[in-house]
Design a protein around this nucleic acid. Sequence first.
DNA 1: ATTGATATGGAATAAACGTTCCAATACAGG
DNA 2: CCTGTATTGGAACGTTTATTCCATATCAAT
Lengths: 192, 192
Amino acid sequence: MPRAKEFDESEVLDQALEVFRVRGFKHTSFEDLTQGLGVSRQSIYDTYGDKNALFHAALRRYLERGLEFVGRKLDDRSPIREVLAGLFEGMNSNNCGKSSPGCLMVNSMVELAPHDAEVRALAQKHARGVEGLLASRIGIAQREGEIDKAKDPVALARFFYHTMLGLGVASRALGERDSLRDSVRMALQVLG
Amino acid sequence: MPRAKEFDESEVLDQALEVFRVRGFKHTSFEDLTQGLGVSRQSIYDTYGDKNALFHAALRRYLERGLEFVGRKLDDRSPIREVLAGLFEGMNSNNCGKSSPGCLMVNSMVELAPHDAEVRALAQKHARGVEGLLASRIGIAQREGEIDKAKDPVALARFFYHTMLGLGVASRALGERDSLRDSVRMALQVLG
DNA sequence: ATTGATATGGAATAAACGTTCCAATACAGG
DNA sequence: CCTGTATTGGAACGTTTATTCCATATCAAT
């Protein structure tokens, strides 16, 4: 029988995700990884493949987690404005941690999408996924009379998604928590 | 007397700006520059300094141009909704050129702001500048009765700025012109 | 204890990178 | 024609990078 793995493969992937989120892909060297993960070079190669594969795995995980998070938040049947405010607030909290790393998906869309087809595909998936969840939750709110039925739920969802992208950029580069909150309040006014 | 410069220093800086916008800073090699600018390595060093200096010069220029562009668009005293729609439309056109490079400021905010103090400073300047122009134009529209005076022009301006950031990301990674237009239409509804 | 997988650290490799140095050429004025 | 600057191409340098190779040590089960 083989020796048991000494590090938690999933846990270390999370750490890698965090390193990439803070430093970006190109700006992260393998030494940054070995140091940040507390795992040797060779073990990283054996377990995840090369730097690209590790990054893609991290981004895929981030994507899944993100969609779960959005889905969970939107399952709440409180008033739609409160639900969306909670969703945005949760995202801002996540993006504005110590060193405000922003959103890995947003960062990757900007840094890598033009050069990396897989990242581009994941970005599409992210956009379609989040927009879809938002649109269907908005549809529910419309049926329950919370939002004017004349509004286009798909267009609303896209607008909110684009707003999220902007908040991701702002949290990484400007990092003013309060103004993000203000913007969320404003964005929610499009619900009428 | 010296030999006259054979390339237009300002024109070449614009070309460098474009290369950086499409490829990003780290992803742009010096060979990319010499090829993209049609100027030799040595001439680039003699004229602009090293890669960092060239990039910073390009970003500063982009910042100035951007503020001029916004100022010019906002000088128009047509109805505020038309003016803002025109501003956003102009930005989207610029961001969605062939190969949809997005916005150099947004790209730099994401890629470099955490690691480069000068980029961070320019980002702050950009945010303050655009937000300021928007807020003052919104104030005018309020005084002319186009917008409810109870609304906070500064918060509105920040919201529109954050929306612009989001459109920059979307244009670079998703590049669907139509949905960007939809989002702009939605965003303008916060004016009431 | 042997086996077989796990993990590590260090050396080695090969490529890419930013940068500098150098020799050669082009050219506008005195 | 000179002189001084502009410009170029290529070589060279030193660094960093991702990746692979290897020898070694660890450990769980048979």
